[in-house]
């Protein structure tokens, strides 16, 4: 599907956890799990738009789940229902959907955002592993579409105390999807490789154009230079070359 540049109307924008917000924008939006939109809710400053994953689409209303990191996401959090926002998308290549066998999803923090929609669209049995700093959030939106949820927190306040990779069992799945902090995803890829399980990873890079023109988000893969915004953000785990 070709991306479009258009303006949308904010239906709601609510805080779901400390720094985490859910924004619903209408209407008539499309896209696949793992794809994203470049968003801007300002004129010239900040200069660039911000890439945010599709967290769900319900009857054309698109849902974004985002964490306040800096000035752009801070401005998003100030939007009220009725405000307008510019959207460019859907962009990129998302998660493959037509796979068979059990699926394991491993997400860290705000990395759960694209996985909500993914769980919704997968028709196989899905187990969800999610690691958080303090406490979990938004898991009620995932519950209904998965078999099991495993939670870990750094704080030990909920679920396993420690990293999610400590309780993740790759051998139980035929495919694994991961999104979150890179160190976590590297461990997940490593575990999947050892267990001979195919893994898909959603990469993050700073973006300028979001459409594949500026090469600001290029990464080295086993098949040469690839653009995270166009060829990704989802890549096969074994394609990623870590240069250290």
């Amino acid at each position: 599907m070709d991306p479009k540049y258009c303006s949308g109307v904010v239906f709601s924008n609510t805080q779901v956890y400390e720094n985490i917000y859910e924004m619903k924008v209408g209407e008539n939006f499309k896209g696949q799990p793992g794809q994203f939109y470049m968003l801007r809710a300002w004129n010239r400053e900040p200069f660039l738009s911000r890439p945010i994953s599709i967290s769900n689409i319900e009857n054309g209303t698109i849902i974004f789940l985002y964490e306040i990191k800096g000035k752009g996401t801070e401005l998003f959090s100030k939007l009220r229902s009725g405000d307008s926002i510019e959207l460019l998308g859907p962009l990129g290549t998302g998660f493959p959907l037509g796979i068979e066998g059990n699926v394991g999803i491993v997400a860290g923090g705000i990395g759960i955002a694209p996985m909500v929609y993914l769980c919704h669209k997968l028709s196989t049995k899905v187990d969800f592993y999610a690691g958080f700093r303090e406490k979990s959030f938004y898991m009620d939106k995932i519950e209904k579409n998965v078999e099991n949820i495993y939670i870990s927190t750094d704080s030990g306040l909920e679920g396993h105390s420690g990293f999610i990779t400590e309780i993740f069992q790759p051998e139980k799945y035929s495919s694994v999807y991961t999104c979150g902090p890179l160190p976590m995803m590297r461990i997940v890829l490593d575990m999947c490789r050892k267990a001979n399980v195919s893994a898909y990873i959603s990469m993050e890079r700073r973006m300028a154009c979001g459409i594949g023109a500026c090469l600001g988000c290029s990464i080295l893969t086993t098949s040469g230079m690839r653009k995270v915004c166009k060829d990704g953000p989802v890549f096969k785990g074994e394609e990623i070359v870590f240069n250290d």
Binding site: R44, E45, F47, L48, A208
Partner: peptide, 12 residues
């Protein structure tokens, strides 16, 4: 890093 936003533009 290949892109870094600045006030009124970007470094590449």
């Amino acid at each position: 890093t290949r892109i870094h936003e600045t006030t009124g533009g970007l470094l590449n």
